[in-house]
Amino acid sequence: MTDEPLLRVTALSKYYGSRIGCEDISFDLWPGEVLAVVGESGSGKTTLLNCLATRLLPTSGTASYRMRDNQWRDLYRMSEAERRFLMRTDWGFVHQNPADGLRMTVSAGANVGERLMAIGDRHYGNIRSTAVDWLGRVEIDEERIDDEPRAFSGGMRQRLQIARNLVTGPRLVFMDEPTGGLDVSVQARLLDLLRGLVTDLGLAAIVVTHDLAVARLLSQRMMVMKDGHVVEAGLTDRVLDDPRAPYTQLLVSSILQV
């Protein structure tokens, strides 16, 4: 049990020419903590996520990550190879569209196994049994292991993408609208599954979503973004039950009651 954060972000900004992507974002993320980033389209939340996951380079600011050996590393000063290694082992990235995170023309089992091979696993039997185990954990029937994700429904693809990301036991997972394109019943199942996995594995996660219900269910903390800035941040239930910023009040009051 350590009392140090996992990720430290300081004054991170990203400009597209003269346009603001996100500006002056600072926060710490601790192990096991789920942070939701909410806001409307164009608020800069995905830009922020992509900068943090080093898929984009920020214009200014720093982000440091505490590696497994407890050494702090500046994400933007790492070599490309180191970053790729981090991405394949200690991190996960769940895309809104599963096709962006999966290889659609190789089998479900291989999609999961590929990440294991990337960290040096070579024993086919072990890889396959781990893949079977993970398909089970994301509620995909074992007999679908040799099918390609092309033959899967949207909800199954998304669950497979999650299995592929979590199989290496990452400490930090980035999620971009993980329930975005799914219908409501599939969404509920996926959310519930994610919630269980995040709690059981003690994952830290940064979840970008425009859906406040998703944020409420998954996260302990949230940041509300508008026009590239964080307008309000704090404990998720505090922000949702006692929103202070005008924009947060607008967001919360716009939820339709069922």
Binding site: L235, D237, R238, D242
Partner: peptide, 9 residues
């Protein structure tokens, strides 16, 4: 009560 629980600011 909600302030004591940290649910209200």
């Amino acid at each position: 009560l909600k302030m004591v629980y940290g649910n209200y600011g």
